[in-house]
């Protein structure tokens, strides 16, 4: 069974939002809403500063609260562990929005809960998600975390990394690569 995820190299990411723009055009995301976004974390005081820039989106969690709480079964795990929403089953009750620790979901003007799909329509064609395919810094890698020989598995194994809010217990599948290598 595949488990799809992303590894995003924060040392290369410049936070340019190309990923956000590409998602918007690829998926025709409505005006005023976005399925991915840039998070910038600054630590320290002038001039001793560190900064991490992250391209964030739905973590396609292995233990996804949005799936667990969905009263109609609209939110579900699809192939490869990708968390998707059956638009026709979704009533727009917003339970999933409240449950997501990453604030990754919104209600589409057409009435259903909307979020990152990992661009399944592209992945099925053997392509990268749109956000990855445009990235001018080549900082993102998509692939199967259960396959030890995949590029993403090798990166997660060899590079220092972290996930976002691991304490939420959701088992997120997006890994942020940081400086240095794993010993």
């Amino acid at each position: 069974m595949a488990r799809y995820g992303m590894a995003i190299d924060t040392t290369k990411c410049v936070g340019c939002m190309d990923c956000v723009v590409a998602c918007k055009t690829e998926n025709n995301v409505p005006e005023g809403l976005n399925r991915d976004w840039i998070q910038t974390i600054v630590n320290g005081e002038f001039p001793n500063l560190t900064m991490e820039i992250r391209s964030e989106r739905c973590n396609h969690c292995t233990n996804a609260p949005c799936v667990n709480c969905c009263p109609t079964g609209a939110s579900h795990y699809d192939g490869g562990g990708i968390v998707l929403v059956h638009h026709d089953l979704c009533t727009g009750c917003k339970a999933c929005i409240a449950s997501c620790p990453y604030d990754a979901r919104f209600i589409n003007p057409e009435g259903y809960a909307d979020k990152c799909t990992f661009c399944v329509h592209r992945v099925e064609e053997g392509k990268d998600p749109a956000c990855i395919s445009v990235c001018p810094t080549y900082c993102m890698t998509f692939g199967d975390l259960d396959d030890p020989n995949s590029e993403i598995s090798k990166l997660v194994k060899s590079r220092n990394n972290h996930t976002v809010l691991p304490e939420a217990g959701t088992s997120p599948n997006i890994y942020y690569l940081i400086g240095g290598n794993n010993a």
């Binding site: 998926n27 699809d78 490869g80 990708i82 998707l84 059956h86 638009h87 799909t117 399944v120 099925e124």
Partner: peptide, 12 residues
């Protein structure tokens, strides 16, 4: 790649 259900989120 595991075939993903056609009823799910496609390109709108």
């Amino acid at each position: 790649f595991l075939k993903i259900g056609a009823a799910t989120a496609g390109v709108a």
